[in-house]
C-alpha cells in the first residue's frame, strides 16, 4: 500500500483529529490478557479510564509510526488526558495515557464506518472500561474523534 508523508505540524495540535479507536486489556487480567502487564507507564488497568497513545516517547514512536500512514501526532506523556468521541453514537469519554499504542503503521489506510460516517487509521486504544462507555466491546473497532481536554 502506498504511504504518504506525515503532516506537519501534528494534526491533533490544531483541531480534533479523526481516526479509529479500538480496545486493549492491561493490568491483572484473565485469558490471553493475563501476560499483558501494566503498560509503558506502569499504571495501566483494564478497569480504569485510560488509553494508549502512539507518541508517548521516542521509543514508542519508533514502534507505532503513525507518520508512515501520513499522520503526525503530538508527543503526549503518561497521564495526559484526551477526549474520545464515538462518531457512531456520540458517546464521549475522557481518559489518561497509560500505555504506548496502537501500532498504527500495521493498519495503515484501514477505515471503519458507521453508515456513511468513516474515519481511517488507528490512533488510539482505550481500556475496556473506557471503550465500553462509548460503544459495546463486541464492536471491536469504531470511527472516533480525538481532542485534548
Amino acid at each position: 500500500m502506498a504511504r504518504t508523508p506525515s503532516t506537519d505540524p501534528p494534526a491533533d495540535l490544531l483541531a480534533p483529529v479523526q481516526g479509529e479507536v479500538s480496545w486493549f486489556c492491561c493490568g491483572t487480567a484473565w485469558g490471553p490478557c493475563s501476560s499483558t502487564g501494566r503498560g509503558a507507564c506502569g499504571t495501566c488497568n483494564s478497569g480504569s479510564l485510560q488509553h494508549a497513545w502512539p507518541n508517548t516517547s521516542d521509543a514508542c514512536w519508533a514502534i507505532t509510526r503513525p507518520d508512515a500512514c501520513g499522520v503526525s501526532l503530538s508527543r503526549r506523556t503518561c497521564g495526559y488526558q484526551h477526549r474520545t468521541t464515538s462518531l457512531c453514537g456520540g458517546g464521549t469519554v475522557v481518559t489518561a495515557i497509560a500505555d504506548c499504542g496502537p501500532q498504527t503503521d500495521l493498519f495503515c489506510g484501514e477505515r471503519s464506518c458507521c453508515g456513511s460516517t468513516c474515519a481511517g487509521n488507528r490512533l488510539i486504544d482505550l481500556t475496556p472500561a473506557a471503550y465500553s462507555r462509548i460503544a459495546s466491546l463486541s464492536t471491536g473497532l469504531r470511527p472516533c474523534e480525538i481532542s485534548t481536554v
Binding site: 484473565w30 478497569g47 480504569s48 453514537g89 458517546g91 469519554v93 481518559t95 475496556p128
Partner: peptide, 28 residues
C-alpha cells in the same frame, strides 16, 4: 434504545480520567 445510543447515554460523572471506573467490573 438503539445499541450505539445506549452507550452514548449519560455515563457517570465525577470519575477522574485514569481512575478505576466504579460502574465497570472484570474478572472470572
Amino acid at each position: 434504545l438503539g445499541p450505539e445510543a445506549a452507550f452514548a447515554a449519560e455515563p457517570r460523572l465525577g470519575v477522574d480520567p485514569g481512575a478505576a471506573d466504579p460502574d465497570f467490573a472484570e474478572g472470572r
